[in-house]
Simulated assay, not measured.
Amino acid sequence: MTVYVLGGAQTDFARNFTKEGRGLLELFAEVVPAALADAGVSADDVEVAHVGNLAAELFTGQAQLGGLLVAAVPELDGVPSTRHEAACASGSTAVLAACADLEADRYDVALVVGVELMRNVDGQRAAEHLGSAAWAGHEAVAAKFPWPALFADVASAYDARYGLDPGHLGLFAEHAFTRAALNPLAQARDWRFPAAAFGPDDELNPVIEGRLRKQDCGRITDGAAAVLLASPAFAERLGGGFPRIAGFGHRTAHIGLAPKIASGGEYLFPHLHGAVADAYRRAGVPGPGALDVVELHDCFTITGLVALEHLGAAPPGGGGRFIDGGGLDAAGINPGGGLIGLGHPVGATGVRMLRDAARQVSGTAGETQVGGARTALTLNVGGSFTTVVTMIVQAAA
Rank of each mutant, 00 (worst) to 15 (best):
V276G: 03
L228T: 03
A224T: 15
A230I: 03
V207C: 11
S263H: 10
P232Q: 07
H250D: 11
F198H: 03
D278M: 09
R211M: 08
L171V: 09
A186W: 00
W191S: 12
D201L: 12
V227Y: 00
R219Q: 15
A246G: 05
Y280R: 09
H254W: 09
S231T: 13
A196T: 15
G199F: 11
G223L: 03
A279P: 00
E266S: 10
F172Y: 05
R189G: 00
A230E: 01
L272M: 14
P166R: 05
N183T: 12
P194N: 07
F193N: 02
L164F: 01
G264V: 07
L182E: 14
L182K: 05
L164C: 01
A181Q: 11
G218Y: 00
A246C: 08
A180L: 04
R192K: 15
V285N: 05
G218P: 01
L185K: 05
W191P: 06
P232N: 09
A186P: 00
A176S: 12
H168K: 13
V276S: 07
D165R: 01
A196Y: 09
A277T: 15
L204Y: 13
H254Y: 08
A176H: 03
P166D: 09
R282Y: 11
S263I: 14
E266G: 10
A195K: 13
F172R: 01
T178C: 08
G256V: 10
H175F: 09
F269L: 08
A186Q: 02
L169P: 00
G199Q: 12
G256I: 12
T221V: 14
V207M: 07
D190C: 08
R189P: 00
G199K: 13
A176T: 02
L268Q: 01
D222K: 02
A225P: 01
A225N: 04
A181K: 03
I255D: 04
A279F: 02
L212A: 02
H254C: 14
F172V: 05
G264P: 04
A188M: 13
A233K: 13
K214N: 13
G223P: 03
F248W: 15
R282S: 09
A283F: 00
A279R: 00
R219C: 07
A258W: 10
G210A: 11
P259V: 13
F177Q: 03
L268V: 09
A196E: 15
V207K: 06
L272E: 14
